[in-house]
Design a binder for these strands. Structure first.
Lengths: 143, 143
DNA sequence: TATATTTAAGAATAAGGAGTCTTAATTCTT
DNA sequence: AAGAATTAAGACTCCTTATTCTTAAATATA
């Protein structure tokens, strides 16, 4: 359901929150190394996060990125929207073209519940909560 | 979350159940026309459904496909498994490589609940129920 | 038996996303 | 001012999936 770009972007945001938060600037190169992934691919996705207003970026030596908001104000749904978009939450599970609340397919209502629950989870889970949990539980944020 | 092939396959199975059920043989060509989709693409996916034991197929004039089981015995999850596989239900939402019940990421448990609910829905919803609902509600099965 | 019809199988092509690279722009440091 | 470091932007390649097509096999019917 989430693209690999989106999953990686969330993990990157988790790392940035953990390592730099709203203050310290972290080079994308460092993030790529910690996540053990391609700098090129990550940098491309980071650009989207910058455009979406979730990160500030700084060029030049000592440059990099940092959170554009407080960790408690950045929700997972914001990252999902910036990278994958919200189409998943807006289309019929079975692909019926004209399916809607007014003209529902046979599983529209059942699915609606599930989808809303997922949306709620993404909307209510902040970077602060995730990173806090991982640090509290001594979970390495880049495992 | 479901591929377009999977969505179309489910809609095809709904049509086959509605139009022929376990008795009457329906040509794939007819299904493609009713669903207003590509015969070629549908035929390929139908092959997978035949291999998965959800449909019987018959060659030659008057040939086509029919359900290989009673409509109440074919669950949505069977179709999903045949076309997309169950990877969705088995991998970490955030793509952490070593995430598991024993070594969970920060949203593993939350996500686990949602995922199980979706799996349950797919596992407990039969073609009979869907087609019955659509017929009862006067919903066109191919809208 | 010949023909038409239909699925089976796999090759071929198209499209989209994933991933890489190159060049430009910016800015820190010396 | 020059050089190095870093992001920005867009082109490019590669790979997977989606989609189409071709040929083979099977079978009903005349």
């Amino acid at each position: 359901m989430l693209s690999s770009a989106c999953k990686e972007s969330i993990r990157a945001m988790i790392y940035i929150t953990h390592a730099g938060g709203e203050r310290k600037i972290i080079p994308v190169k460092e993030v790529a190394e910690k996540l053990d992934t391609s700098f090129y691919f990550l940098a491309k996705n980071v650009q989207k996060l910058v455009k979406a207003g979730l990160l500030f970026s700084y060029k030049g030596p000592k440059g990099g990125v940092k959170l554009a908001k407080k960790p408690e104000e950045i929700m997972l749904i914001d990252i999902v929207e910036a990278i994958d978009g919200l189409e998943f939450f807006e289309t019929c599970l079975l692909g019926f073209k004209d399916c809607s609340d007014e003209h529902p397919c046979a599983i529209h209502h059942k699915w609606s519940d599930k989808r809303k629950a997922i949306y709620k989870m993404f909307s209510e889970t902040s970077l602060k909560e995730i990173v806090g949990d991982m640090e509290k539980l001594c979970i390495n944020v880049v495992f």
